[in-house]
Computed example of a mutant assay.
Amino acid sequence: MADPNPIRNVSDTALWVAVYRAMETERSDALFRDPFARRLAGERGQAIVDAMPRGKSMSWPMVVRTAVMDEIVMRCVQQGARTVLNLAAGLDARPYRLPLPRALRWLHVDLPDMVEYFSERMRDETPHCELEFIAADMRDADARRDVFTRASAHGPVLVITEGLLVYLEPAQVADLAAALHDIANARWWLMDLGSPMLLKLLEKRWQPRLSQGNAPFRFAPAEGTGFFAPFGWREAEFRSTWDESFRLHRTMPGGWLWKLLSRLQPARKREAGRRMSGIVLLEAEASP
């Protein structure tokens, strides 16, 4: 673990985020409990956090993202979701840690190596719902069509792309958006979404190490959720990471001071700051 940049590829970022879930779980006032996170992250996950600039102090947006997505997942399930299609699922242990109904169908999709790593470490655990592991490369059009067709068989479908889109090119996201609407027939799409302002902020802090590890940040549309409208999606809910960090008491160091100073800014600039990063729920428009 002496490598100055232990991130080897995009899949390693799942180890990184798992450490943040472990850190939150170990708090006495934890927002959620993921008892599997430390085991899943392993030594490499901790090495990544230690190597990243301000690695530990920057846990807050990932913790907020996890907590808010947990809330939205549970609400969509209560509203009738029968299948969850979790793309680039990484080390997401929600089927094991959330009180999901037994009849819910959860498709855990990722690259073969990642699926093998996760399933091997969770082999002695029992999920709360019907969990299916699917090893597939979503960059392959045929594989994508097969998985999405399989998901559409038991709707309504909720799609999760937590921590995925930022690593894709806009054209790849456009293809994904069209396929999720037209082939998977998904009703909801849960994602995290950043703005160009966020990418610019992270360029100096994290981008060099991520690029060296073949995991550069790429997708942050200037039009925000409007990017998805041509593919049949509308914004149903936008939860600002900044606002949610105060609601959940997991804001950045010095966040309260920044919040006070923001009141001096014009309303348009404050709103841009709110939407710099968020957890988004899209809903499918009916096909014409």
Rank of each mutant, 00 (worst) to 15 (best):
L201H: 11
G194Q: 09
R209H: 13
D192I: 08
Q212A: 15
F219C: 02
G194K: 03
S195R: 03
G224D: 05
L201Q: 14
L210D: 12
P196Y: 14
A215Q: 06
P221H: 03
A222F: 03
R218N: 07
L210T: 04
P216Q: 11
P216Y: 11
K204I: 02
E203F: 00
W206C: 00
Q207W: 00
A215H: 06
K200R: 15
G194E: 03
L210N: 09
L193Y: 01
K204H: 07
R209Y: 14
M197H: 13
F219Q: 02
P216S: 13
K200M: 11
P216I: 05
A215T: 08
G213H: 09
Q207Y: 02
M197A: 15
Q207K: 06
G194D: 06
W206A: 06
A222T: 05
P196M: 07
S211C: 10
P216A: 14
L210C: 05
M191W: 05
E223N: 09
G224I: 00
P221T: 04
R205K: 08
E223H: 03
P208Y: 12
Q212T: 12
M197R: 15
K204L: 06
L199Y: 10
P208D: 13
G213F: 11
L210W: 01
N214D: 15
M191H: 07
S211N: 12
F217V: 07
D192M: 05
E223K: 02
D192P: 02
S195Q: 05
A220Y: 09
P216W: 10
F217E: 06
Q212Y: 10
A220N: 02
L193R: 02
P221L: 08
P221Y: 05
L198M: 15
P196H: 11
F219Y: 10
S195E: 03
L198H: 10
A215W: 06
L202R: 02
M197S: 15
N214M: 11
G224F: 02
W206T: 04
E203A: 09
S195C: 00
G213V: 13
L201F: 01
G194R: 00
R209K: 15
E223D: 10
Q212N: 12
P196C: 05
L198C: 13
R218I: 04
K204P: 01
M197C: 05
P221Q: 06
R218L: 09
D192G: 14
S211E: 15
M197E: 15
G213A: 12
R209C: 07
S211M: 12
G194I: 02
